[in-house]
């Protein structure tokens, strides 16, 4: 197993408070890694460091290292723009751009300088198929993305991320607002996508983590409590806290 992202002793300060208290974790290539934990555990902050979206927050300070394929994404050798080409993000709430379905998907590729219609067409179709959305929208590619249902919008956001051809996909509680059927479709898509991409799924739905991830990490109050194969974590956790969380005793 190759390490895609190596996080070493990562600390995040927000003003005076310490949000992440020294996280060390390896994320493996072509696996789905689940980050779980109750609200305030720091799991979402962690992924916003990986895609450097944290840069838009004010009053933060980061210590430690995050290596992706061996180079540190925090020390300035990689700028945010090229980093975000390699690390795609799907947010908790589906946020379609106020454009057509087609233009939403084509947004990333166009930024990368792809202009030929035929190439864009191919990318749009492929991305929508991978996100299990193609059949539902192929006849209305040019209608507004805002007209899609919530579940469709979230798959659109997934497809839009895929279209930029990233290496890593971060999903920040992507199913938190969705119905079970839409959730199932996204999970199905993710299971297929891991062949091509390294996926990090943040969720506080332990059942979802158990269903589709290969590795799972449990965070609590800014600390990594336990990390290992999902099977091990869910059948034989080493920490009492992990067990309590998985059994739904808190969080």
């Amino acid at each position: 197993m190759d390490v895609k992202i190596r996080i070493e002793n990562l600390r995040l300060f927000y003003g005076m408070s310490e949000i992440l208290k020294g996280i060390t974790i390896d994320v493996y290539t072509s696996m789905i890694t689940g980050f779980m934990g109750p609200a305030g555990s720091g799991k979402s902050s962690l992924i916003s460091i990986i895609n450097r979206m944290i840069d838009f927050e004010e009053g933060i300070r980061i210590e430690g290292n995050v290596h992706m394929d061996g180079s540190n994404i925090l020390d300035g050798t990689i700028d945010q723009i090229s980093l975000r080409r390699r690390v795609g993000t799907v947010f908790a709430v589906p946020i379609p751009l106020p454009r057509s379905v087609y233009e939403n998907i084509a947004y990333g590729p166009r930024l990368q300088g792809i202009r030929e219609r035929s190439r864009l067409n191919t990318i749009v179709e492929e991305s929508l198929k991978k996100a299990f959305l193609w059949d539902e929208v192929k006849d209305r590619l040019h209608t507004s993305a805002l007209k899609l249902s919530g579940g469709q919008q979230q798959r659109l956001c997934l497809a839009r991320t895929l279209a930029t051809k990233p290496e890593v996909i971060l999903l920040d509680e992507p199913c938190s607002g969705l119905d079970p059927i839409s959730t199932a479709k996204i999970e199905e898509a993710l299971s297929e996508l891991k062949k091509e991409f390294t996926i990090i799924l943040v969720s506080n739905n332990t059942k979802q983590i158990a269903r589709i991830t290969d590795f799972a990490a449990f965070f609590y109050m800014g600390q990594l409590i336990e990390y290992g194969s999902t099977e091990k974590l869910f059948t034989n956790p080493s920490e009492k806290k992990t067990e309590d969380y998985i059994q739904g005793k808190f969080g």
Partner: peptide
């Protein structure tokens, strides 16, 4: 603000 966040997450620069 969300629309800007999405755009940046898709690797757009500020001007883009």
């Amino acid at each position: 603000r969300n629309l800007r966040i999405v755009s940046y997450s898709l690797s757009a620069t500020k001007w883009e």
